[in-house]
Structures are given as structure tokens and as C-alpha cells.
Computed example of a mutant assay.
Amino acid sequence: LPSYSVFRRFIKNLSNSFLKEIMKNQVNILKDLGFIDNKFISVDATPVKANTKFNNPKSFSNNKFSKNNPPSSDKDCKLGVHTANNSMNLHLSEDKTVNSKKNYEFYWGYKNHVICDAISGLPIAEFTTTADVNEVSNLTEILASTNEWFPLEGSYIIADKGYDSKQNHDFIRYTLKGHAFIALNKRGTKKHNLTSKGNVICDAGLPMHKDGKQYFDSYIKQKFCCPFRTSKDDSLCPCKHDKYFNGKKNRGCVKYITIGTDYRSSINRDSIFFKKIYSLRTESERYNSRWKNLNTEQAYVRNINSVTNLNTIGHICL
């Protein structure tokens, strides 16, 4: 066999477009044979850790997960966050803090985004990015790129909360003419206690009164006011709220509820139909598990072109 350096140069210098063409030909052949179609499409991403000591949990380097201290062994990798729960969007700030109560971990490396046939469990397309690329901002790009050679018009696109956004829903519905089955990401929205008629319950436990609406392009803000806002009696508020004694003509609390009017807000995620289609997303989890068995979750090369080529070869093998 040739030496390791020969393989290393080959995998680094080979253009990924050649491997992508091989994978496209495989997918098109499977499509013609009826093994793959575009009816149910599942999208997911999995982390690929860079080959650097900073990803070793036994490493005690100072500031090993600081943006200002990138690893010298792999200059292409970026700092990312991996979490087992996508109920919240995680964003890195300059001081590398993350506002989330979920279990997560920092890592230096890349991400591999995979589009699968949710029935056969076979990959259709894959893309490798650095770890700092957010899934929610990348979905339209990978769907549009795949749609150029594998038609996704009318497809049911299935994805987890990490891909939830108005832009992604509108692209699937109005550009691809398909349907989005993406779990809702509340992104820190306030949860109000409501009465059976939909009125907000204030801090004192009283139902608030509706007080007009504000209309915007894709949502409506319903305003609620204190039931005693015009009263002059200081003893009516059970909790003696500070805003009840604001000295203004209209006293008391004011709360708002946002009512979406776009496609994303119109989806009934509690319906049996939505849950049945969304359950097909587990096929992506199964495929990711098979792909990781090829030892692709840990990079053994130290540049993005080599990582990208090895990832594509892994998908071609599967």
C-alpha cells in the first residue's frame, strides 16, 4: 500500500465536487429504481469534532473554549455547541456564555448536515460546514442546492426544533410548494396563564381585560389591561402590585399576547397527522448512528477540505 502521506495528500487536494457527483449518481439510480423518492424528507445535523487536544476532556489548557484561543493544529475549525436537546437555540457570545438550562458541551470542529429519505433511511445530500454555522440559518441553502438536481417540490420536510423559523417555513411552503413538519421552538417566549376564554391572568390571579390589538405583517399583538385600571380605590389590587400605584390615569399591569398569522403559526402541531409524519424523523437519528459507526464523529485530519471529503466518502459507503 502507498504510505499514509500519499492518502493524506489525496484526501486534502481532491475536489469535493467529484465525490458529490458520485453520490448524486448513486441517488439518481436509486430514485429510478424506486428505492428513494421525495415524498418524505428528513433533515438533521451531527457534530464532527476536530483533531485537537482542546476537545479532549482530560485537557486542562487555559481558555481552551475561547474564541480568542483557536487551536493551532486545525486552523479551519470553529467553536460550536452541541446539545442533545434542541428546545432552545444556543448562541455563543463574545465571552462564550450560553443562555440555556439544557445539557450542552463546547467543541472545536465542524457540522455535517444530511438530507435523508425518511422512508428508506438512505442519504440524498450532505453538506459539511464549520461548527459555528447555525442549522436554522442554513436550511434554505441546502434545500435549494439539493432541489437543483433532486426535485423537492411538494415534499414533506421534517426537521427538529433547531430548524424552526418563519423563513424556513415560508421557503418550504411557498418556494418548494411543500409542507413543513418542524417542531416549534419557543425561543424564550413568555408563557401566560389564561382563562377558558383566552384572557391573561395577572399576578394577583385576576382575569385581565382585552384592550385592543396591534397589527403587524406576520403577527398580531393582543393587549390586556388591569381590570381596575380606572379605579381610584387603592385597596382593590390583591397583591398590591407596584404598577397599580403608578400615579397615572390608567393604572395597573399591561400584558401582551402575540398571535401569529403566518404559515408557521397556522400549523397544528398537536394533531395526529403532524405527529405521525414528524415521527418519521427518527430515521435521521438511525442514519446518523450508522454514519458515526464509521468513526466519522471524530476527525483524524486537520483541514476542512479533508474533513468534507471523508464525510462524503462515508455517505457514499452507506
Results as ranks from 00 to 15, higher is better:
Leu79Thr: 10
Ser87Gln: 02
Asn62Pro: 00
Ala183Pro: 01
Ser15Gly: 11
Thr52Tyr: 04
Tyr156Met: 13
Val48Leu: 12
Ala159Gln: 05
Ala131Cys: 05
Pro227Ser: 02
Pro57Gly: 12
His209Cys: 13
His113Lys: 05
Glu148Met: 15
Ile182Pro: 01
Phe106Tyr: 07
Tyr244Gln: 09
Phe35Met: 12
Leu19Ile: 08
Phe150Cys: 10
Lys31Gln: 04
Thr308Gly: 08
Pro123Asn: 09
Leu184Asn: 06
Ser5Val: 11
Ala144Asn: 13
Leu1Asp: 07
Phe10Trp: 08
Ile201Leu: 15
Ser218Cys: 09
Pro2Phe: 14
Val98Ser: 01
Val43Asp: 00
Cys237Ile: 06
Ser306Glu: 08
Lys111Gln: 14
Phe60Ser: 11
Asn99Tyr: 15
Glu153Asp: 05
Asp242Trp: 04
Arg264Thr: 02
Ser265Pro: 03
Glu153Arg: 13
His241Ser: 10
Ser100Gly: 07
Thr308Glu: 02
Asp132Val: 07
Glu283Tyr: 05
Trp291Val: 02
Arg9Glu: 01
Ser145His: 14
Leu176Val: 03
Lys249Ile: 14
Asn38Ala: 03
Pro47Trp: 04
Ser100Pro: 08
Ser15Gln: 13
Phe224Asn: 01
Thr97Arg: 02
Pro227Gln: 03
Thr129Ser: 04
Arg173Ile: 13
Lys166Pro: 04
Phe60Gly: 09
Ser5Met: 12
Ile22Arg: 11
Arg8Thr: 08
Pro151His: 09
Ile119Arg: 12
Val6Gly: 06
Trp291Arg: 01
Leu139Trp: 09
Ser120Gln: 07
Asp233Ala: 06
Pro2Met: 10
Ile36Asn: 03
Ser289Cys: 12
Arg264Pro: 02
Ala159Gly: 11
Thr46Ala: 06
Pro57Lys: 11
Arg8Tyr: 08
Ser265Lys: 01
Gln298Glu: 14
Leu143Trp: 01
Arg264Leu: 10
Gly109Val: 03
Ser235Ile: 12
Glu126Asp: 07
Thr258Asn: 04
Leu176Asn: 03
Leu318Ile: 15
Cys226His: 01
Pro238Gly: 10
Ile124Glu: 03
Ile220Asp: 07
Phe216Ala: 02
Thr312Phe: 01
Phe245Val: 11
Ser120Lys: 07
Gln222Trp: 05
Val136Tyr: 05
Asp242Thr: 14
Cys317Pro: 07
Ile257Gln: 12
Cys116Met: 13
Ser93Glu: 06
Leu14Phe: 12
Asn62Cys: 10
Asn268Tyr: 15
Lys190Ile: 15
Thr189Asp: 11
Ser137Asp: 07
Lys255Ala: 09
Lys243Trp: 09
Leu92Asn: 03
Gln214Met: 14
Ser165Ala: 14
Ile11Met: 15
Cys225Tyr: 09
